[in-house]
Nucleic acid binder design. Structure first.
Lengths: 174, 174
DNA sequence: CTCGCTGTTTGCGGATTTCGCAGAACTGGT
DNA sequence: ACCAGTTCTGCGAAATCCGCAAACAGCGAG
């Protein structure tokens, strides 16, 4: 019925060893899990059986691997939107310079619900943070009252979003 | 069986008028669609019936709305991961200054597969673009050979990612 | 080499969910 | 009041999801 798939699977399977972890504690993914993620990046609701056919695994096996990937926090299956469409009128990327413990500031930003995205960077900013707000007042409040008030924040520079041009989640689908 | 749900629905339903469009061509979302999106932001695979129970609609109605939201491009249901986990070792945010047609440059960036995110901004950069690459060589190539080569790009500044601290998709879930 | 341990895969039923469709209900315009 | 367009509902049929027990593979200890 699906003999050629099985054949290709056992070929793939050879080097897909047991899941291990590297130093960071980030789970090491084999080729099959990667292929599963790729399938779900194209369509987060794709049936397990269809994914199984694509990657050469049974429906139940795919289901278990997906569940594990979710439990481990390797991936999440979610709806993503353009915030502007959903009623958040003001967004900005904020570049931040820190004196002292950068990670502590990053953690503080992480705790703010208006902050969608926090990344520590090399370059003329120590941290980049994306802010999503309802309106100008809200944005102003977050940047001036809350972020600049954090002890250790030396300076900030804001880039207010005018238009979102691209937003994809297709890593590995090249 | 679910009488109280029906009751609460008709209350909600009153102000959920026909879908319209604002000037931008972006569909206007009513409270119910927003609630549906919110449900799917928590779990992209949540069954239609469960969503229906939460927002006060029948399973079929939810299904139709979700399909329309997907068709309209208002949202997409996808798996998202930390690129580092999936084998992309180098990422960077690139700030770009443009002379002339900013949107043309933004479109050119959008066409590059390594570019995950493009946004036009106000401030000292005209465009911010997020780049996801396999390694340093790849990143260098994209920034120097491809982005800087675009006619109209006056200057760029790169912020290489050191550590991703937060990445959420929970707009409206506050 | 064999035993046993562990983690993964497979193959099933049964329960749930998805899907397509036809009719009812609601809205806005004439 | 009526009509056209859209949305919602309620089904039955098909597909999918889920849990479980058995088969299987890797691996270290004896």
């Amino acid at each position: 019925m699906h003999s050629e798939v099985v054949a290709s699977r056992s070929a793939e399977q050879r080097d897909s060893s047991r899941e291990s972890r590297n130093g960071n504690g980030t789970p090491q993914l084999d080729a099959v899990s990667l292929a599963i993620i790729q399938q779900l990046q194209e369509d987060g609701r794709r049936p397990y059986a269809a994914i199984g056919k694509a990657v050469g695994l049974s429906e139940a096996a795919v289901r278990q691997r997906v569940q594990k990937l979710l439990d481990q926090g390797v991936m999440q299956i979610v709806a993503v939107t353009d915030p502007l469409t959903v009623g958040f009128r003001r967004q900005a990327m904020v570049g931040i310079n820190v004196e002292g413990d950068v990670e502590a500031i990053a953690d503080a930003l992480t705790d703010m619900s208006e902050v969608e995205y926090v990344v520590m960077t090399a370059g003329s900013f120590d941290i980049l943070a994306e802010i999503v707000c309802e309106d100008d007042d809200h944005l102003l409040d977050v940047i001036n009252k809350r972020i600049r008030a954090l002890p250790g924040v030396r300076s900030t520079e804001s880039f207010v979003y005018l238009k979102l041009k691209k937003q994809t989640y297709m890593w590995g689908t090249r």
